[in-house]
Nucleic acid binder design. Sequence first.
DNA 1: GCTTAGGTAGACAGACCTGTCTACATAAAG
DNA 2: CTTTATGTAGACAGGTCTGTCTACCTAAGC
Lengths: 211, 211
Amino acid sequence: MTLAPSVSSAREPAGLPARERILRAAERLFYLNGVRATGIDRVVAAAGVTKVTVYRHFPSKDELIAVYLERRHETWIAWFGEALANARAAQPSAARNAHPLDPLLQVARDWFAQPGFRGCAFANAVAEVGATVPAVAAIAARHKSAVRDAIATLLPAGETARDMAWAATLALDGAVANAQSGVGSAEASLQGLRELLEAVALRARARRRRG
Amino acid sequence: MTLAPSVSSAREPAGLPARERILRAAERLFYLNGVRATGIDRVVAAAGVTKVTVYRHFPSKDELIAVYLERRHETWIAWFGEALANARAAQPSAARNAHPLDPLLQVARDWFAQPGFRGCAFANAVAEVGATVPAVAAIAARHKSAVRDAIATLLPAGETARDMAWAATLALDGAVANAQSGVGSAEASLQGLRELLEAVALRARARRRRG
DNA sequence: GCTTAGGTAGACAGACCTGTCTACATAAAG
DNA sequence: CTTTATGTAGACAGGTCTGTCTACCTAAGC
């Protein structure tokens, strides 16, 4: 079995407290190489601390994974919400073909283009550890729900807004998974996502017209 | 780190040749617990052979993983194509609300309900080993392309059929990922998938009408 | 000044990983 | 009958994994 490929062996700056360095190193390595594929020793090396220090701050690796996901959830959702708001603000509302979910497409494009993009951290964690770490499944569910809520802010409040936001969340998930596995597929994923989002938005408009 | 949870320690029947038993055991364990999380020793035990026998048939674990994915791809696509065809044949074509992608929704429902469902084997493998095993990414791409082709058989051949099938593929991926991670989410995933598929189908009909 | 928290270094236990080794058994094919 | 393929059993090497251990250091708070 091929092991430990692109380890990204950078070190966290020494000025920060140890716990923060550990978490930053874990965030980078866990996301890039997977929570299971990344050993504690690698986190130790990247954080520039010792193993004792890690285990003084976190009782187990599972706990470290849980805290990593918690932080990732908060920072990612904050970024996502802001990016959506910015994209919507920049959207020329009079533009032809403008639909309420278009900002989501732009944000997805930005996300996929980020260096070191490797898909959804939560979906990856679930795929890696499955149901063996209950905390992982729990936070993944919470995360997905928060994504839906963020997307819902793009939509006019109404009876079907929740369903539409949920559908858009699934569409995003599919595009993310595809962009992750992909051979030259970032653009293709975005194309498919656009098709889905436009279709959903059009259908919603038709529904509203019918009343 | 919690290890080896639901190992499903059944044994393959002794009547079959060793290579077949190995592959069947690998198929079950790799899918259920992940390709990385499953050690060769576990495959050995489940297949009822010895390690020497495994390594006489497969030069390395990576190779075994590749063959596993190859087989899974073939059997899964065969099942999928047939299930789609059956669902379409059973579809009362005069039914109200019938749209060409509806069989896909039914097949997804069946798939999610299968015992031991744990998402898309290829997406999971990519999430686990990432780019470290190039064969994994390659076959995952091939698989996704085959899924799109199978879905395209539901659609009237036309200019946009390929795009629609691709969009439906992404929608399915999203629903699968969600059903996998999910706390009581199989039904919610299907609901979202239905919303997406209906929207895509409606838009296609509108396009056709416009000519 | 003394205690306590947080840090360092590195060895260690016990487990699991992949892959190889020796040595023997069986059965079909030439 | 002999070769070759395929199987068995189990030890082994060398590595990685999580988590614990001893022993020492430093700086802030009381």
